[in-house]
Structure formats: C-alpha cells, structure tokens
Amino acid sequence: MALLGASANGAGVEPDADAAAQQALQHATGVAWIIHTDPHSGAVRFAAPKDGAFELPAAGSPAEAALAFLTTHRRIFGMQDPAREWVVTRTGAAGDGSLHIRFAQIVNNVPVYGAVWDAHFNAAGRLTSTSGDYAVGAFDVSTRPRLSATAAADRARLCVAERAKLPPDSFTAGEAELEIFPSRNASPALAWRVTVRSSRYRLDSRKLHLDDRSGTVLAEEPSVIFRRAPADSGPVRAYPEHCLPEGRRTP
C-alpha cells in the first residue's frame, strides 16, 4: 500500500509542525485554523477554519478557488505547484447545498498512486475544510520510462510465477500503466502498475507496483499470494531476492 507525504531523505519533522503550520496560515489569512500535518514530511494533511467557514478569494469556479488557495499557501501546505499537480476527478453537490471536490495528483499526465486531495464548501460557497495525501517530491520525478510497458508486464508475471513456484506460462499480465509511487523511506519513483492473474490455478490476482529503474517489486495488493493448487502446498509469502529492492532483501 502506498505511503504518502514522504520526505526525500526519510528524516522526520519537528513535533510541533501542526502548531507551526497553524501559526503560519493564521498569519497569512487572518483567521485561526485547525491543522494536522504528516509526521514524516510535515506537509499539511488537513486544514479547517476554526471559527467558521472561510471565504476564498473570488475565482472562476470553486475548484479554481481551492487551487488558488493551495498555490498561494503552497509553502505552508508543503506542496510544490498545486495548480499543475492537482486535477479535478470528482465534483459532488449534497442536498444541503454543500459542494465537495476531489483532486488527484498527476505529474506530466502520470498519476501519483494514492495521492488525492478534497476541498469542501458550504452552501454559501465558503471553504469548510480541505484535506488529503500529497506525495512530496513527486513533481520532480522524471516521467520518461526506462522499461517498456511490455517489459514491465513480463517482469511482473515472472516475479509472481517465481514467488508461487509455478511455471511462468501459468500466469498472464494485464497492460502495464505508468504511475509515480510514493514511499516513506525514499524519494517517489516512477513505477509500473501491473495486474497478474492465473486462469490455470485458483490463485488470487496480484496488482504489482514495479520500480521502472530496477524492475523490482515496490508493493503489491493484496500482500500475500496463496497457492491453492496442488492441495498440499501452503502459502508462499516471499518474492525471490532479485525481485526485491536492495533495502528489502535478506542480509
């Protein structure tokens, strides 16, 4: 599962990051805020005006107003370029007149895995809260792949087959899709998302995230492969060493 808001060097942030961000945003806007930050990166994960909804400067639409707000205060929120990173993926109006907008973080048309941001407005069009997960450093990731989609899909299929101790032709891989994959312990990486299935054996399908540079498995969903045929075999939980990044290999 993706872990978002990771700092590039893995260092923690000051324990009073919430208070520092609250003071900075209050100074910038003139109103008090309730703020929660990511404990690893210090990026803001939740912000809400403390004493009532906040009126954003006029803009063409609520989505544009939210992006302008994040852009104006991007240093406080720990973001790099909100207007170029966040893309509206869903807008919904509730029966009480409130409006809810969801953004996805996308860099050069490549989605950032698990990175979404929400902005909520009351019936009067004022901001009631904004929150989400931002992948620090994703904006700087090169989106030019080294592996081809075909090579990534084949690599995923072979790694799953080795883990399950079954012939590679027991599995098929779906179309590989580029993404930027965040990590708590390292900089975000360009990756391929591939789903591997088996029609020959009763196996759970695997959705793998492969590092574009090394072809190693950064993460998978779900986390354990269960080999169900033949009946006397048990679960195989570990990928072979060459399918894992160096930091996850057995010493």
Rank of each mutant, 00 (worst) to 15 (best):
R202V: 09
A186Q: 11
L190Y: 04
D133A: 15
E220D: 14
R146I: 04
R157T: 02
I225W: 01
V194E: 02
A156Q: 08
A164E: 13
T216S: 08
A176V: 07
A153C: 03
D169H: 10
V217F: 07
I225Y: 02
F226Y: 10
S142Q: 10
R163Q: 15
G137W: 04
G174F: 11
E175N: 08
L178G: 10
T195G: 00
K207S: 14
T195C: 02
A156V: 03
P167Y: 09
V196N: 13
H209N: 05
D169C: 02
A189I: 03
T130G: 08
R144D: 09
S183G: 13
H209F: 15
S214K: 06
E179L: 15
A151R: 15
A161L: 06
P167Q: 10
S142I: 06
Y201D: 02
A161T: 05
A152Q: 08
S131C: 04
D212P: 09
A161G: 04
R200C: 00
E221N: 11
Y134C: 06
L158G: 01
E221V: 13
F226W: 08
G137H: 04
F139Q: 12
V141G: 06
A189R: 15
G174W: 11
V224E: 14
E175C: 02
P168Y: 02
Y134M: 05
E179W: 08
V160E: 03
P182F: 05
